[in-house]
Design a protein around this nucleic acid. Structure first.
Length: 158
DNA sequence: GCCAACGTTGGC
DNA sequence: GCCAACGTTGGC
């Protein structure tokens, strides 16, 4: 199975790429995803070693800021069972968990962030899920070519 | 803060 | 099973 490529959204005020760099082993459980399509990607498709673009949403500007990799494949998101957690789901049970997460490990921060407007105006990225109208999925597949293009933009001098 | 787009819920 | 109402996402 060849390595696949993904984009994960996060709000930097909640959890930023710098937070990931500071985490133990630069790794965190990507919890809190509560969308079935995204859940299916996390549970079924994301494999150890897959590469991940980390995207800051609700930021100024919104931007891809770093690279990461899947460090552990899909397993039940523990926050769904925690009554005190914002992501608690009373209708899920450990026997039949509804929500899944992967572990994500930082690879590196990009030398320069790749802002959303630049992604929009780059012809090679026109088909990225991120720039499709109304796209809100927080876990998105990315092609190898798109991944390489975004990383190249992040390496270009300002 | 606004609001368009989308997903989910629940009445019927 | 339809669809209106509601809540959320996320750019601007």
């Amino acid at each position: 199975m060849p390595r696949k490529y993904w984009l994960l959204k996060t709000e930097p005020e909640t959890f930023s790429f710098d937070d990931l760099l500071r985490a133990p082993a630069k790794t965190t459980g990507w919890d809190g995803v509560r969308n079935y399509q995204a859940r299916n990607f996390l549970r079924d498709q994301m494999k150890k070693g897959d590469r991940v673009l980390i995207y800051h949403s609700n930021a100024d500007p919104p931007a891809v800021v770093g690279e990461a990799e899947v460090a552990r494949e899909g397993y039940p998101d523990p926050t769904q069972f925690d009554r005190r957690d914002d992501h608690y789901d009373p209708e899920s049970s450990p026997d039949e968990p509804r929500w899944y997460q992967v572990d994500v490990k930082a690879v590196r921060k990009l030398p320069t962030p790749v802002p959303l407007p630049l992604i929009r105006e780059t012809p090679a990225l026109r088909k990225m899920a991120l720039v499709q109208r109304g796209q809100r999925l927080s876990v998105q597949p990315v092609t190898e070519a798109e991944y390489a293009t975004v990383v190249a933009l992040g390496e270009a001098a300002k």
